[in-house]
Design a binder for these strands. Structure first.
Lengths: 159, 159
DNA sequence: TTTACTGCAAATATTTTGCAATATC
DNA sequence: GATATTGCAAAATATTTGCAGTAAA
């Protein structure tokens, strides 16, 4: 509860810094969007966010939503994922346990997967001629439910 | 040269197996598309492939292209990437050294990054309730050219 | 007061779908 | 011959853009 509020305050501060540094205006729309992102569930898409904003009595246009999201991506308060489908999925990036993603190629459900060992292995890589900032690891395969279903139907792909 | 031909033959065979197993028809369009994918450069998008097909005197519709690509994805002869932009990028999956991707967030150029250690670390992970089939690791950051450019402009993001 | 930002609506880009014609099995 | 697949065009989806009005600095 309290912790959540503190996180929201911190990200608001970080956003302000970024906006100031880049000579962008501090509009109420931008802060309202950031707030909602750091209040609602972690994974979301633009349409869900749009609906949610309007339900919360803060009407914003899609144009503003996309505009603001770009800023949030730029200052790394939000991450963007495209799990192999058309729809982009976003999630907050500050104060979240960093995790990887397991994506079922049958039902398209996405599960978070935390593995500190992998995280370190990837982060500690020195790469020539490249300055890493963040990364995404998507593991595609079958969730248990779909694996069982396919096994029954003898449809398992030979590997 | 010869090797390239052999790869094309092998993937054609694999595709045939898959089509047979799934009771799909073996149309010339499908084989022509597979052939071109295993002839042209490794990374491509749908539009490029569409143009290339038509230049090669094998006219196919976009509908067929998308249809066939889905089959090729299903049987894992092709991989699909979405590097944070709208456009999907594809690449052949058979007989290629598996690699990761470095994506510059400034110029959006994509570089291949081979690292056997990481590859093994990821492949050897046992994950509960999930059967991994393949994976994608995208490392976002700045390529050297953009890093230098931004440094000059004092625009480097504080981390 | 200046001009960046917002909302709206239209435009763009990408992928999917319905349907009649065609070709595989 | 039955029907999966093709091409076409229209539809659906997702995102971007131009512009006039509004509000932050």
């Amino acid at each position: 509860m309290d912790k959540e509020n503190k996180v929201r305050e911190t990200v608001r501060q970080k956003f302000t810094e970024y906006l100031t540094a880049n000579k962008c205006r501090k509009t109420p729309e931008r802060y309202a969007i950031l707030d909602l992102i750091y209040t609602e569930q972690r994974h979301f898409d633009m349409d869900t966010l749009y609906e949610a904003m309007n339900e919360k009595n803060f009407r914003v246009s899609r144009a503003t939503l996309y505009n603001t999201m770009q800023l949030l991506l730029d200052c790394q308060l939000v991450l963007k994922h495209q799990f192999g489908r058309t729809l982009s999925v976003y999630e907050r990036a500050y104060n979240t346990d960093f995790h990887h993603h397991l994506i079922c190629t049958e039902c398209h459900k996405v599960r978070e997967y935390k593995d500190a060992e992998l995280k370190l292995a990837i982060r500690n890589k020195k790469i020539k001629q490249f300055t890493p900032v963040h990364y995404s690891l998507y593991i595609y395969g079958l969730c248990n439910i779909c694996a069982r279903k396919l096994k029954k139907e003898h449809k398992l792909i030979k590997t």
